[in-house]
Nucleic acid binder design. Structure first.
Ligand SMILES: [Mn+2]
Ligand SMILES: [Mn+2]
Ligand SMILES: [Zn+2]
Ligand SMILES: [Zn+2]
Lengths: 144, 144
DNA sequence: GACATAAATGAGAAGTCTTCTCACTTACTC
DNA sequence: GAGTAAGTGAGAAGACTTCTCATTTATGTC
């Protein structure tokens, strides 16, 4: 819940209006323990705002993205949005069920000087995503 | 050129037929200094095989992917295929022009035990992609 | 070289995700 | 309670990828 409040405040502070639709999307995000795709978010949010349009979900995600409250997660197949705590972190995605966990430890930065030297690129950012099997799916695999 | 030959041999050895279309795609790959998207590849390959269909480019990339001669590159916006030398490596993508360079130094593996402990995930693979500005675009920026 | 056969192809339909358009609605300021 | 600019829904459109199926073609065999 505090997550939702915080995102709402971020929007207000950045001069965006709080609408029924945006509130529904924020609430759907806050209520989900696991990050949701735009489509999943739409299905959840419609329960609080039945005539919500999918385009509005995308627009809300864009706005949250601008404000820094949400981040794209390049999952294996297709893209999805993920509500993120502030700060630098990355994702581990379950290849079985799609659940996502976050981690903040990252050693990629130390690689960059060398890559810059090798390739001549001026490196500005990095995308790191791990894939594997989540605890829940691991347990189910063992149960069989 | 040796790159093209090698991919052709890989296909042969895996029991795939060498067609005019596949040869054209392989040649387009070999001739490009920079990795190409399916669409770019199509436009190049059509010069040697005018009636080539885009679907065939995708099919060829799939086949090469199975054989291990090509790898998906999750570039910032949309997907593209990249012909890859064998072995473990990652990409740096230019945010201005889309050019891609490769690097093989990677320290992500050393991160994995800790992430596994923190998240409970059994980590199986990682995706690492750097973004920045390529030497060519850097030069153009300075020229202005 | 001709034949048989399974693999491969082209053209376009279809699918998926995302963005755009535009007439209409609504949150916020005064 | 206006006035106004921001926001919205519905559906069209766009980008990329996969699928379908009738037709072509590479390759092993004679
Ligand atoms: Mn990092
Ligand atoms: Mn690596
Ligand atoms: Zn799982
Ligand atoms: Zn560039």
């Amino acid at each position: 819940m505090s997550g939702s409040t915080s995102l709402a405040e971020q929007l207000k502070m950045a001069g965006f209006r709080m609408t029924r639709q945006r509130a529904a999307v924020l609430r759907a995000m806050a209520d989900s323990p696991t990050p949701l795709s735009a489509l999943q978010l739409w299905n959840q949010a419609k329960r609080n705002c039945p005539c919500l349009g999918l385009a509005t979900v995308y627009r809300t995600l864009d706005v949250l993205n601008m404000v820094g409250g949400v981040e794209r997660c390049h999952a294996a197949s297709g893209r999805s949005f993920v509500s993120c705590p502030p700060g630098d972190h990355h994702h581990v995605v379950c290849v079985v069920c799609g659940r996502v966990a976050e981690f903040s430890r990252c050693n990629v930065a130390s690689l960059i000087p060398e890559v810059s030297r090798e390739t001549g690129f001026h490196v500005e950012s990095h995308l790191l995503e791990l894939a594997g099997i989540c605890p829940t799916c691991l347990a189910e695999e063992k149960a069989e």
